[in-house]
Design a protein around this nucleic acid. Structure first.
Lengths: 356, 356
DNA sequence: CATAGTATCGTAAACGTTTACGGAGCGCGT
DNA sequence: ACGCGCTCCGTAAACGTTTACGATACTATG
């Protein structure tokens, strides 16, 4: 406590060094846990740093060693996403952070503006070099962003599969499995005409969902009818629209699989307006993200999972592909299809008296 | 096109300079629009930069001039927030970006982990120096963060008022006005016993809401009854709980004001379970954030506003308080109470046959 | 005692940029 | 011919770190 004490926010490591009468290099080594430093002096340095409130200037550090200790999560917040994403991202963020924080890595979210091309935005962010690695969400079927990142040699993982050539790490919800299990269940209940909702955007999840549905039908020997695949936004509005279109069909379905729980709300409303009751007159199965549709009557049969844990998995996948952390997270596979759990409800409770 | 063309991501401004046979200083000046450079050579530099895909290294830049061109939005994603916030933040982010992008400012979101003290988190982020300015959300009644930021002399604006001594810029939803208008409306309908929901966290918005409610009652000469103020989480669950507690009262209310639309969903469900129909047996008024509760029957009377525009306002407030931009955003006042609009529904349609 | 080895520390270069400063060239008026 | 102002550009220092390298002191070993 010879000098000033904790006055101003501290100028830099140099000031800290001369306050301790130690060379700046030693201070740096002490702070960063390097071996070439006496434990005694290391303690002094740490104590002084704490007392004077010194924190390393990130710009200087990253300029020198080319690393920032920051991981970026790019989200698009496109019009449709804003309406639907709910707290999906905040929840997955929690899972990511629970892993990253163990390594003193900070997570920041990079929201691409609506009116900017995601590719250009990402390019800018990569060039800024404020993140060491990236997590890409809302992956599209073919997504140029992966090529960009691969070329820039910046580690990344994707939340969602894609058809990209680059063999990158990803984790994805098992919407193929959801579609299969849903169809199986409905067929077991006697249904043959099963409709499905497809998202209106070209997010890859939608393709996987519909593909799974299609193959499941095939497996059961049921003909695929394009009229039963309804493109709609993944919102209440979209669910309402799905119901509306299906009601207009002359040979309508007896069951429907919705890709998003919010749709169930609108769907319920529309069919009930028409006097049709889910679980009695039509079977409904959906994916459920957050406990939004919990209040629906009759209770919605849905698939769900812990989005938080998905974040944990994704974080570990990413770290395992970063050279600096890969030995701490050894992995055989860096591509995870995340399972979902069926929560039986009443909305598909009835069994169809099959004509056959 | 003398040299290599666009091979690797480019090493730095130095490479760009020698590719053009120009000094590195001139290149920097050309890129940054400084006056001391021939328009002719500026064009050459810009073209070469574009062609070679050069983008300034942010670390070097910010190390030198202490500025990053990045604005941070700190969100807490506390347990409760995650469940409720919906897309509030993504929507307000859109508004912020629409302003920031005009100045080549990028917005990043800084999500404070659940298990970390927001104050410590913020301190760390400030020390990292990756943002030029900050937007603080989920302000608490007394919020140490403002003192920290004021002391660190980093520009900031708050989304939400607080009682802090520092006279900082902020924008806040007019929940005082909402409470007042709601009470006025309900009293005009003949109600005297009006309940209100208060958030369980110590977010300042809740205090303002309840304070406004209280003063409005006073204005109408209605006694304030603490039993009618129900603390609950701002979720469906919370709404359910509010209804439950109110049903348990021997001298229950004839009307209720909910602070959050999601609560209305749970509230509807619980009272309807008890055979009580909103808009006929009890009046319900709520704040509405996103069109979630649109499907409620009877239609919910609620207050709403454009969260996007609130973001725009907040961005302008922040910029007006930053020296580098203040002349572009001259302002008399930097504290905005953001108005909300009443959307009449059916949930408070009936008039009470007043006993008096 | 000489030597090698080890523990600890100081020195200085490097990261990529911005910018203060000065210099070169030029036109122009005296 | 001279000086002045202006335009344009090059030089080099500075921002705050990290780290390769060498220096020093001490210990162990022959």
């Amino acid at each position: 406590m010879a000098h000033g004490g904790k006055l101003r926010p501290m100028k830099g490591i140099r000031q800290l060094a001369e306050h301790l009468d130690i060379s700046i290099g030693t201070v740096s080594r002490a702070l960063n846990g390097k071996p070439d430093v006496n434990e005694e002096t290391r303690k002094r340095v740490l104590a002084a740093a704490e007392q004077l409130g010194y924190v390393a200037n990130q710009s200087g550090r990253s300029l020198r060693q080319g690393t920032t200790n920051v991981i970026g999560l790019m989200i698009q917040s496109s019009r449709e996403t804003v309406e639907n994403s709910d707290n999906f991202f905040l929840t997955v963020t929690g899972g990511l952070q629970s892993v990253f924080s163990r390594h003193k890595l900070d997570l920041i979210m990079l929201p691409c503006p609506h009116d900017e091309d995601p590719y250009e935005y990402l390019k800018r962010m990569v060039a800024r070099r404020i993140v060491d690695a990236l997590i890409i969400s809302e992956t599209q079927r073919v997504d140029k962003r992966f090529d960009l990142l691969a070329k820039a040699k910046i580690p990344f993982a994707a939340l969602g599969r894609s058809l990209s050539g680059t063999q990158h790490p990803w984790a994805d919800l098992d919407f193929d499995g959801v579609a299969n299990a849903a169809v199986d269940r409905l067929v077991a209940h006697g249904h043959r005409r099963i409709a499905v909702s497809a998202p209106s955007s070209d997010i890859n999840l939608g393709f996987i969902f519909v593909d799974g549905y299609r193959r499941a039908l095939e497996r059961h020997g049921i003909a695929y009818d394009p009229a039963l695949v309804i493109r709609a936004k993944s919102s209440e509005q979209g669910g309402y629209q799905v119901a509306d279109e299906l009601l207009g069909l002359e040979n309508g379905p007896t069951a429907v699989i919705l890709i998003y729980e919010l749709m169930a709300i609108g769907f319920y409303r529309r069919v009930m307006e028409a006097g049709i009751i889910p679980g009695r007159d039509i079977a409904v199965v959906s994916f459920r993200e957050a406990p939004r549709a919990k209040f629906l009557q009759p209770a919605l049969t849905c698939f769900r999972t812990s989005v938080h844990d998905l974040g944990v998995e994704l974080a570990e996948i990413l770290l395992s592909s970063m050279p600096a952390y890969s030995q701490e997270y050894p992995r055989k596979t860096r591509q995870t299809v995340w399972p979902l759990e069926l929560i039986p409800g009443e909305s598909d409770a009835f069994r169809l008296k099959t004509a056959k």
